[in-house]
Design a protein around this nucleic acid. Structure first.
Length: 371
DNA sequence: AGGCTACTATCGCAAGTCTT
DNA sequence: AAGACTTGCGATAGTAGCCT
């Protein structure tokens, strides 16, 4: 069995509920083993995948079981089952769960469970597709230890509750770091610098990278204005405004930022695999994009890389030129840092930090209830 | 009948993570 | 370091029930 920082928490909860039998229960219960595997992210940072979907699928079905006091009865076999939509809504109410879909409940939890425990004869979630009713497999909840039947339903809820608390703390730290930095004034700009630099490393979470680049570029361009109008007499000055167009994840081929009034499009990427953005470039006129690349390679190197890819897939030099012309600008990590430095000299640091905090909360479905 | 709405099922992408 | 697997989430298809 894997040991990680959350394993002792599971042990403690079992100890409290079952005393001496705790160890035997942990060793024997497939569900508890499963929880142990799925709570590994407790020791990782705010960016790690926390597996809420599968944990919450278990949680909501077991919660329904406990709410109906089936852990104290013995007629669960006669239960009509929990309604899909109620379970579904419930998982979305849970912390960080607001965007979860039906996958875990219907499929992924059971499949993964089977994969982890191929010789377990039971699957955790039972359902009736016709009636959309769901049950937890009671065989996995009740263990017989030295002649006594023990029900682990409540312990499982407690374990997942504690896990949520741990994850919430991890995220709170990140938000608090940001908020503390807001307090730090210019005299300690070094700390801020280090913090932001840390968020702009090649190994940070793609979503955080996108948020931080957005916050920096927004302020950077916000300090620039252009003159425009329909007629010569009618020319007015406007600051460049950068808009974020949606969430980061699964924003498949979507544009990450849009700039008004110039109409520039920005795409934040991990790799410089520009191919997917310029598919069929030989047939259609494509909109030029500015790439914000999570890389410390020089702009020239990145462009060279893109050109090699273009050459590989298109061969014809006219198309390759069209392709390259569609890349309006490449912004790498060093450039972002440069722009960040410029933003700092204009005393816009606070805005950058504020934006990072706001965007992070949206991106990670985090609501601070208490503050 | 045709259309609307609420639910449910399934796909696919991108990035994280593990394995070899 | 590449490839396989995992996870989160949007997109979209399918369907049942109801309304006009």
């Amino acid at each position: 069995m894997i040991e990680h920082t959350f394993t002792p928490v599971i042990r403690r909860i079992l100890q409290k509920a079952f005393g001496k039998s705790a160890k035997t229960i942990f060793d024997r219960s497939f569900l508890l083993q499963y929880l142990n595997i799925k709570t590994k992210a407790a020791e990782r940072g705010a960016k790690s995948r926390a597996s809420y979907a599968n944990l919450y699928a278990l949680y909501v079905v077991i919660e329904d079981y406990v709410n109906n006091k089936y852990h104290q009865r013995n007629d669960y076999k006669d239960y009509e089952g929990a309604r899909f939509i109620q379970l579904f809504r419930r998982q979305r109410q849970l912390p960080f769960g607001s965007k979860l879909q039906n996958h875990a409940l219907n499929h992924r939890l059971n499949e993964e469970f089977k994969k982890f425990f191929p010789n377990c004869e039971f699957i955790p979630i039972l359902r009736n597709v016709k009636t959309s009713r769901y049950w937890i497999n009671e065989n996995l909840l009740i263990l017989e230890i030295s002649g006594r039947k023990l029900n682990i339903a409540q312990a499982i809820l407690l374990i997942i509750d504690s896990y949520i608390e741990v994850r919430r703390d991890i995220f709170k730290h990140f938000i608090r770091d940001c908020q503390q930095l807001r307090m730090i004034q210019r005299e300690d700009s070094k700390a801020v610098d280090i913090f932001i630099r840390n968020l702009l490393r090649p190994n940070v979470d793609a979503r955080i990278f996108e948020i931080v680049s957005y916050a920096i570029l927004k302020e950077f361009y916000g300090g620039q204005s252009i003159f425009w109008g329909w007629t010569l007499d009618d020319v007015k000055a406007d600051c460049l405004v950068l808009y974020k167009t949606g969430r980061t994840n699964a924003n498949d081929g979507g544009i990450d930022f849009v700039m008004r009034p110039l109409g520039r499009f920005f795409q934040v990427t991990e790799t410089v695999d520009a191919g997917k953005y310029f598919l069929d470039i030989d047939k259609i006129q494509k909109f030029p994009l500015t790439f914000v690349v999570k890389s410390e390679d020089s702009v020239e190197e990145i462009l060279k890389h893109i050109r090699i890819q273009a050459e590989r897939s298109y061969k014809i030099s006219r198309i390759i030129e069209t392709y390259m012309n569609c890349i309006e600008e490449v912004i790498n990590i060093p450039l972002l840092l440069e722009r960040f430095a410029e933003v700092k000299t204009k005393n816009k640091l606070q805005n950058v930090i504020d934006n990072i905090v706001v965007q992070s909360k949206v991106e990670f479905n985090y609501e601070d209830t208490e503050e």
